[in-house]
Computed example of a mutant assay.
Amino acid sequence: MMRNFFIFSTVTFWLAVAVFWAADVWLPDEAPRPDSVAANKTWTLVEISQHDTAEDCWMAIDGAVYNLTAYLPEHPSNPAVILPWCGKEATEAYHTKTKGRPHSSRADQMLSTYLIGTLIRP
């Protein structure tokens, strides 16, 4: 009796592992993000300047516009470091961290997840 239970449990376990592995291989991770749609949306500095608080923080960096509101609490340093740049063009601040040091490539990858459009310069 116990041996049959052990065999059944083992087979069930490995079957479940195989199903999860197959699902990971053949199913997409998530719905593709329409970055091209976000990149086609355009914003002016006047529009961006209306989003200058911790509860609504947008920035223009390298000609792209990002909504960093959700990221502020996750920033490794104090969010107060970022707040002065909310609602502004912050390319230089981003590339130098205002101390002459660039952000990491990981930060660049994370930044792309907050893309909401492109900056239009007058």
Rank of each mutant, 00 (worst) to 15 (best):
P34Q: 15
W43E: 09
W26V: 06
S112T: 11
H51R: 12
M2D: 06
V65E: 01
P32C: 02
P73N: 05
L45P: 06
P76N: 05
S77I: 04
G117C: 05
E89A: 13
C86Y: 01
V37M: 14
V17E: 06
L15H: 06
A80G: 11
A80D: 15
K41C: 11
V25Q: 14
D35F: 15
P32N: 08
T113E: 09
F5I: 15
T96E: 08
L72Y: 02
I120Y: 09
S49C: 03
E30I: 10
L72N: 03
H51T: 00
C57S: 01
T91A: 10
P76D: 05
I116T: 07
D108C: 04
T118S: 14
D29I: 14
Y114C: 08
A22K: 07
I61P: 07
F6Y: 15
V81W: 14
A64I: 03
K97M: 15
V65K: 03
Q50W: 00
A93F: 05
D29P: 07
T10R: 07
E92Q: 14
N78Y: 06
K97D: 08
H75E: 04
I48Q: 08
S9E: 04
A70Q: 10
A38G: 02
Y94I: 09
A60H: 06
I7C: 09
S9Q: 10
L45D: 09
S49T: 00
T91Q: 10
T10V: 12
P28D: 03
Y114M: 12
T53K: 07
T96D: 04
P28A: 00
D108W: 06
L45A: 07
M2Y: 13
G63C: 05
P79R: 08
V37H: 14
D52V: 00
I116M: 07
L119Q: 08
A70N: 05
G117K: 03
E92A: 13
A31H: 08
A54Y: 03
F20N: 09
T69Y: 03
V25L: 14
L111P: 01
W26P: 01
P102H: 06
V37D: 12
F13M: 13
N4A: 14
L115R: 14
P79W: 05
